[in-house]
Amino acid sequence: MTEWDQMAQRRAEQEAGRFRRLVDGLREQVGRVIVGMDGVIENTLIALLAGGHVLLEGVPGLGKTLLVRTLSEALDLDFARIQFTPDLMPADITGTMVLWEGPGGEREFQFQHGPIFGNVVLADEVNRATPKTQSALLEAMQEHSVSVAGTTHVLDEPFLVFATQNPIEMEGTYPLPEAQLDRFLFKVRVEFPSLTELHEIMNRTTGVEMPHAEKVASREEILSLAAVAREVPVADHVQQFALRLLLATHPEGEDAPEAVRQFVRYGASPRGAQAMLLSGKVRALMGGRFNVAVEDVKASALPALRHRIGLNFEGQAEEIDPDDLIREAIEGLEAATRQDVPV
């Protein structure tokens, strides 16, 4: 082994150690403010370090907005919040050209940046806006840029959209279009807190001092660690598992369970597999490993695929939960791909 090889290996190990320390620090800081929601915090951190956007779904008042705000505080990133309403216009998000008058009386149009120009953008109640407004996020989320009046404005990295939405069945909401949903790395469901957690929330929020998160990492650190995560190797059989799982969500897929064939109109897009593997890499580093395991893929499958599966009429009528379909696909696939010797 040459010295250079040793250095490369050591650097990788050091960066992985730094990665874990950062995640531990973030968890601690977020945990000072947010009570419970371990799974939500975990998935949010993973999406953050994988450079993906997150759709948080839950009824109002569960702390979705607080979570995102706390995260941005801990990371020292620019935080912007957009409250989506039915009358919100695309320009209210991206920004618009305004007539600007200089000290000498000269006038010119200047681009006034919208709230999308932040590092962490909270799109609160995103499904309350009309599809036209929702689509204003499309380019920003995918390309990390905004085009206004023929000019493309590049967004600062990292650029992360944390959208919250109320359950679809609530009144006054517009379901997000499939193309929009596909751009979210994860869709995370925020569950109602337990009694113990509610007690803790009350204790923290009704006292004199309100807890605050402290800065743990800088913007540059986040960017470099996100790049480290992408270096984590994925074994062939793990990648194979992820891809077969993706295809198992398609009704015409070879490994698709019966329920998928019956209730699904379309399965997850390739972005779903990207999401599983990328988040798997982050999970591996968070777990102190240098490789993605099948378990990582399985852990990421639900948040990465649930919003990418489109139910058919029968599935909607039967109120089928995509999570159940994914679990069934995982079980079937595990049995089919289990590599073991017959002893």
Partner: peptide, 16 residues
């Protein structure tokens, strides 16, 4: 075992 077959593994692969 898979990474052993690589011609020149990266630092992360060596760490793995």
């Amino acid at each position: 075992v898979g990474l052993m077959g690589e011609f020149y593994p990266s630092g992360m692969a060596r760490a793995q």
